[in-house]
Write a protein that binds this DNA or RNA. Structure first.
Lengths: 254, 254
DNA sequence: GCTTGTCTTTGATATGTATCAAAGATGGTG
DNA sequence: CACCATCTTTGATACATATCAAAGACAAGC
């Protein structure tokens, strides 16, 4: 399994790697957070954020480092503040399905069960906010508008999950790659990043595990898109989408 | 497209087919509802349910009748009270991915957007509760515990969506069918119905569209499971699972 | 600058499922 | 009871993608 750290199982050592916040100071770290507007925190005012700050700490992960494994006790929830994460499920023979890539502002780890439903791992150097689950649940009772915000986020994720089921279940390899590139572009645009060219720090293997393909098929398909002038691969893991409208038609199977 | 009614587009005529509840009476229809314990309504007491009763009406659908189409204005949300629904997304060339089968107690139609993210259609004769979306949102503000219940439901659905992505993206046809039958059995058990044999009112085509296969592949695979003694097809659209443990190993690819 | 590990690409072949076609089964309606 | 539409099953063939193998590219470390 990729991403082993010294403990041998890739899991974060919560007693060491999570850094509690300084509680005093002129500006709350939550209020000053660069992704505050992108996540559930934006339901709270600066003053209210102080409550949130009290139940959060920072986690730093290196590339490939595990945040949690499927089945581990779901004691914390997380918000990505920088970098990127992948979440995935495994079959007993090692087959892996990546079920999402998470970027700054994304929330993960919420569960109604006692255990995490999936594993999470850093795609690159990543920083997250970590919240004790029980304390956060208490906070939600005090601030129902945050719970409402989380319900909205969950419903948006459900809609995206259904789009991904359509991709996985019905699209060809080329339609899948086109859809994936467009999704990254839309995602970057929505969060205020550059949407063309797009950053593509994701390996061909990870793309394959997300799209239900193999590494070779992803590579062949990207080469075809390159050869036909639809995309240009740039240094530094970036991809320029040369004709958005045609790519959208391609993604939709037209 | 299957399931056209007289209006030619399969959509429910809301001004005629939805029947408002009688507002007076000794027992609230919501309090008397057979699926009350299975759905979000169980967060409310009998007295509190009266508020819910005031914002709900009944919808009756025949087999194949559409509830709503993807992109239609999302003015209502629904709860299945009897029968079964399927929700799906379409590509422009007619390719269809069924993203869920819904049974009594299931909730559908909630969206943060102005339009439905998917289409919904009756698998068989089906009855649903219908709630005006804005009125329900007001009710959620008055009863945050219902919102909390909905958040829990959404998170459960997200976990199921990820399991389905693993199935769609990584499993073989036989693993898919085995997983599907087991899912129906678990679902029946959880809602107090008979879990073996299971009822299977779903056509091979609908199974195929849910599992990312074709009708013929589903049929061939079911025949293989039959021939190998894993299942027995019974009259009345029922299937007996002959060896749950072996079927679970098969579903998991062991 | 060289080595090494990892990732990507390309080539050749295999295969699971799709596609096309046709026959059989089933249930509803007249 | 017969007919018809729909669904299911089976057979034959095609093909998109997987699998296996090998070569090339790239980045990090010494």
């Amino acid at each position: 399994m990729a991403g082993q750290n010294e403990q041998g199982n890739g899991a974060v050592n919560f007693l060491r790697d999570a850094i509690p916040r300084p509680q005093a100071g002129s500006a709350s770290p939550c209020a000053a957070c660069p992704v505050r507007d992108l996540s559930f925190c934006n339901a709270l005012s600066d003053a209210e954020l102080e409550h949130l700050n009290r139940v959060s700490s920072d986690v730093f992960l290196a590339t490939g480092q595990s945040l949690f494994d499927e089945g581990a006790p779901a004691d914390h929830v997380f918000n990505v503040t920088s970098g990127a994460m992948k979440i995935y499920k495994l079959l007993s023979d090692g087959r892996r399905q990546i079920t999402g890539f998470l970027f700054p502002g994304d929330f993960l780890g919420l569960s109604t069960r006692d255990a995490y439903a999936y594993s999470a791992e850093a795609v690159c150097s990543t920083q997250l906010c970590r919240f004790n689950r029980q304390k956060l649940e208490h906070l939600l009772r005090d601030f129902p508008k945050v719970e409402r915000r989380l319900l909205g986020i969950a419903n948006d994720e459900l809609a995206l999950a259904q789009e991904q089921m359509l991709i996985l279940g019905r699209k060809t390899a080329k339609e899948k790659i086109a859809s994936f590139l467009l999704m990254l572009s839309r995602r970057a645009k929505k969060s205020g990043s550059q949407s063309n060219p797009i950053a593509l720090p994701i390996t061909r293997t990870d793309m394959a595990d997300f799209l239900g393909l193999t590494t070779e098929t992803v590579s062949r398909t990207i080469t075809q898109l390159k050869s036909s002038g639809m995309i240009t691969l740039l240094p530094g893991n970036e991809v320029r989408l040369e004709n958005l409208e045609t790519l959208e038609e391609m993604a939709e199977g037209e």
